[in-house]
Structure formats: structure tokens, C-alpha cells
Amino acid sequence: MTVLRRIAPQLVTLAALVALVTLFFPDFLRIEVVDGRFVGPVMDIAKRGAQVGLLTVGMTLVVATRGIDLSVGTVMAISGAVAAWAITHDVSLAGTLALALTAGAAAGLWNGCLVALVGIQPIVATLILMTSGRGIAQLITEGRILTFSNEGLAFLGSGDLLGIPVPALIWFAAALAIALLMRRTALGLLVEAVGVNRSASALAGVNAAVLLVAVYVASGLCAGLAGIVSAADIRGADANNAGLWLELDAILAVVIGGNSLLGGRFSIAASLIGALIIQTIDTGILLAGFPSEYNLVIKAALVLVILVLQSPNLAHQWRTVGRAARRRREGVPLSAKAQGQ
């Protein structure tokens, strides 16, 4: 119930957005079954949202510790390149996935050590890998698009399980696993504690350094997984373009999800709805058929509207207005309103 209340603004936004897109593209919500698969714009969004969605899961944790991870788009390129290299060098599918995820985790470990042990500010620490990491990926692919034809790996990007696109399932499973890990144990609380006040939580006995490193490793792992999905999607690793600028979409998703960039309380579910909102905008623009010069303008305008509507100041005023209206309607005295918060 508390979760529902937390994600209500995001859900309302998503619903409004879907209504808006449906105005321009009436078949938006139609889902058909073709060859045992569910097909339709909504399924495309679930599938296409996988990359930003996976990045968002990791990014939410990093942001909750008052950090930021700018390197995730680049880490996608690296892990995709590793996956394509491994599968074309006759490594087994399991080995390939292990190698690619290890690459992602290693990148996260690097970031985490710079932030937690060396004490560099997160935005600077992760900027290093963001700018240089694409070079690493290009070294692995030798500057080409490294293509592969392994059906097992391609399945992760474009296959279906029980009629649902595999990337959507991967995204959902990863989010569920991390959300459960955070909320069914004290881990989430500790992450929030470190984000609110690192030294206070350290004094209270939280091993803040290890926790910080672990959070960046988790972000690296999510990016690694996203990189595998993106390489599997086009059956090739495109070091120049894989994950390009997606770190910004992921940060945006976290913000639309109502999480504060100053750390503390976080909600993975809300962030994921944020990611879905971004993907719905992207896909909606494509379906609506506007000239491509307008793509970014429309996206910017919609994001602006969403963020303004969600801004704390405005929310506060809405609440005041709503409360006043309720009082007038029900004649409730001022003192009885507190539970509503």
C-alpha cells in the first residue's frame, strides 16, 4: 500500500502519457497474438525499455548513496564488445555471459574504489570511464561492428519466452531481484543511511566504504547486462554507438521516479516507471510519425511538463488546495487532517 502511494504520481503520469500517445496513434494499446507471441506497441516498449530500465535499476542505488554513475552507457559498450568477442572466439554461451558480466562488474569495481576508497567525487570518478571506456570497447572490436550469428546469444535480445520478449523478462527479473534484496533485507535501509549522511552511518557501525563499492558494482553489473541485451538485439557489438547517452536517460528516469539526487530514500519501482515513461515518449514519437527534426523538442517538452508537475513546490500547493477543498466539503476541523501526509 505504501509502495502504491509512493509510485502513484508516476503511474498517473504514465497513464496520461499513454492517453496522449493513443490520441495520435489509436492502435497504441492493441496487443495481438502472432505466431504465439504478443505483438504491439506496448510489447515494443517493454522490450525497448530493457536497456534504460536495467541501467535505471543500478542508477537508483547509486543515486540513493548521493552518487551518480555517468559511465553506464560506456560500460554497456564494453560488455557488449566482450560478449561479441567471446562468442566469436568459440567461448560457450555461459562463458560469454560470465565474461561480459565480469567486465561490467570490474568497471563498477573501478568506479566504486575511486569513489569510496580514493574519495573522488562520483561525477568526476565515473566521468573517467565514461570518456575513456569507449576506447576500450573499440580496442576489443578493432573499431568495427563485431557481428555474430550465435542463436543462443541473439535469443537474449530478440527471443520470446511464453510470448513475452526476453529483454523485457530480463529487465523485470533483475529489477525484482534487486528490489527484493533491498527491501526484504536491511540493505536498502543501509544504502539510504549512507546516502543521507555517510559519516554518521559509519559511526553507527555501517561499513560505508564496502557498501558504496558494492552499489557501484551492482550498477556495473546492470550496465553489463544491458550491454549484452543491446549487442544481442542487433547481433553485433557497435562500440561507437552502443549505449550512447543512455546514462542520461537513466538519470532522467531516476529523477522522474521521484528520487532525490541528494541521496536517501529511493524507490526502484518508481524509477522503473520513470524508465517506462521515457521509453513511451520515445516510441510514441516514432509511432506518431512527426518529422524527425521534432523528436528531441517533443521529448524535452514532455519531460519538462512531467518534472514541473512533480516538483515538490507544486505538489505542496496541490496538497494545500486539496486539503482546503476537503475541509470545505466535509467540514473537518484543521487538527484532524494529519493522517493524510
Partner: peptide
């Protein structure tokens, strides 16, 4: 007609 940014993805 839409842009695909010259990339496969």
C-alpha cells in the same frame, strides 16, 4: 520517414 542516426540499433 524518421531518423535512425546511421546506427544498427
Amino acid at each position: 520517414s524518421q531518423t535512425g542516426d546511421f546506427t544498427r540499433a
